[in-house]
Design a protein around this nucleic acid. Sequence first.
DNA 1: TCTGGGGTCCTAGGACCC
DNA 2: TCTGGGGTCCTAGGACCC
Length: 289
Amino acid sequence: MDVYRAESVAIMELVRGLAGEAVEQVSVDEAYLEVTEQVGGEGGHDEMIRRAVPMAEAIKAAVRRERGLAATIGVGPNKLTAKIASSSFKPDGLTVVLESGKAAYLRPLPAGAIHGVGKVTEAALARAGLVTVGDIQDCQDDLRAYVGSWWGELRRMAFGEDDRPLDFSDDIRSVSSENTFARDTADRAVLRGCLREQAEEIAGRLQRHRLAAVTVQVKVRYSDFTTLTRQVSMEEALEDASSIYRLSCWLLGRHRLVARPLRLIGVGVTGLRAVTMRQLVLPFMETRR
DNA sequence: TCTGGGGTCCTAGGACCC
DNA sequence: TCTGGGGTCCTAGGACCC
């Protein structure tokens, strides 16, 4: 995994060198680039998009030359269209969607092509008779009953409308660790050992990011795939493995979650905040006594 | 496919307060 | 003592993404 991470860092460096710093990295192998400034603001949207194509070609060539890998790139007027364009020809594709052609480009695609439409929403849309993005474009009804309050935005997206800005923040909202057992178990020693390791892993990640957490959550899954979570919030944020471990044990006991064997056990923390000076100083003072 | 792991965001319901 | 409504916070579950 570290190999992937290192490769990802190298490629993102390469991309920044060619396209500028406006890069939103979504995962190890995916990023959005905002290149409006580089291509210049003159001309219509279509002209600007066409001027971005040579840059996309240069990035593809550099990634192949310097990292020996194929990159797939979608060029479009916004994140939605660029994302869909990039997934249309993998690997090694370069797909361009113009502002003037975006609605037509999306029409024949399945509804699930839209970012945020997963299995459940796709099935709900199909029940309403909407299978393709074109069906959504043509639908005049209010389908909030099927897909919830998201309907208005979904309909705009079906036409390729998307004004989400790139998100450059690297804020972490939660940290978690979980394990699925090869065989379901209710063995307390096994479960405690697992929780301890997970708590240590989480504490390590928190400390690397200088974060502490207010809320600790445990997650269990049984043989029938029933999955439960239980959480507890503290007044003071905590960051050490033993506190996270103790609270997760307490949650398991308090809610009697190990009444039957577990297939999965996990721990997570949320309500993250920067570690304060006092929290940094306290353990130090204790060790000096 | 009898289902891995690490995330984000949204929603519904309950507790609590005024 | 029971009752109403609104706001806020917390909890739990689920949809979705990579």
